[in-house]
């Protein structure tokens, strides 16, 4: 049986008809028992139906727009040009080496498959707060740019937390930091980005201030004197590491990246 929180975390999937049959069944069963969630789902479902309908309606007029005819004939003219171009020259499109490179690059872009793990959704408040903090960087592009020199950030972190932060790791470079309060605990939120514009969040706080979520508290692996707790559920991966007196949490936007290989601690030489 699932609880309210789990039911609500599946709300969007259900609205978009993306939930698995099992999840949907569980949620529907929960709604029969829980009037609070039932009310929320009912409202969200009717808002969803309303918005979807409206979005369709407001775009109806385009179907009859006279622009479409001229657009089509413009496109056909462009295609004619390409046909002529290809027919008159002996160097076909893919015989030109730079064009070949471009098309191979485009092809690589076309291949990109996100992994969707089917683990059961089990989300404590903390996970949600952390995940939110991590993904919210996406809508604040300034955080993904180099703000102050990585060196300055490292020395600032060193003087506050006595933690020797890595400037670079696994192709990710440190770009910015800001403070973030999650569930009444203050974190230092560091952002690392790589060339593919993926980013990694590293959240640091005093281990004494932070209570591990109950479902992983007894699942520590000890590696190199660190206690490591791995939360891995449906596209959301968070690694909690107790390093000395600090709790260090990492999360990546790239679900295929091996998060375990990312070490926020600078390697001592």
């Amino acid at each position: 049986m699932i609880n309210c929180h789990q039911a609500l975390s599946l709300l969007q999937d259900i609205l978009d008809k993306e939930a698995s049959e099992i999840d949907e069944k569980e949620v529907r069963a929960h709604l029969e028992r829980c009037s609070e969630c039932f009310g929320k789902f009912k409202l969200e479902e009717s808002i969803h139906a309303f918005l979807k309908e409206k979005v369709k309606v407001v775009n109806e007029d385009i179907k009859t727009s006279p622009k479409l005819e001229s657009l089509k004939s413009n496109i056909l003219t462009k295609l004619d040009d390409i046909d002529k171009e290809d027919g008159s020259s002996n160097t076909g499109f893919f015989k030109n080496p730079t064009r070949l490179v471009i098309s191979v690059a485009a092809l690589i872009v076309l291949i990109g498959i996100a992994v969707f793990s089917a683990a059961f959704y089990k989300h404590q408040e903390y996970y949600i707060a952390i995940e939110k903090a991590h993904w919210s960087v996406d809508s604040k592009p300034e955080l993904k740019l180099v703000s102050s020199s990585p060196d300055d950030i490292c020395s600032q972190i060193y003087s506050t937390y006595n933690f020797n932060l890595a400037e670079e790791n696994s192709g990710y470079k440190l770009v910015s930091t800001h403070k973030e309060t999650l569930q009444d605990v203050e974190f230092e939120h560091l952002i690392y980005t790589n060339e593919d514009e993926d980013y990694i969040s590293v959240l640091i706080t005093d281990a004494g201030d932070f209570e591990l979520p109950p479902d992983i508290i007894d699942k520590a692996q000890t590696i190199n004197n660190r206690e490591i707790y791995d939360h891995n559920c449906r596209g959301c991966r968070l690694i909690f590491q107790k390093i000395g007196s600090l709790m260090v949490i990492t999360a990546s936007t790239n679900s295929q990246f091996d998060l375990m290989s990312f070490d926020p601690l600078a390697q001592s030489i």
Partner: peptide
């Protein structure tokens, strides 16, 4: 999603995004 009816997975591929990003942006 709303207008063109693409699935999360299709949107992820079209916009070159992680599935999690698609869901959070849609939300």
């Amino acid at each position: 999603s709303f207008l063109e009816g693409f699935s999360y997975q299709e949107i992820a591929e079209i916009a070159d995004l992680q599935l999690g990003t698609v869901k959070s942006r849609l939300h």
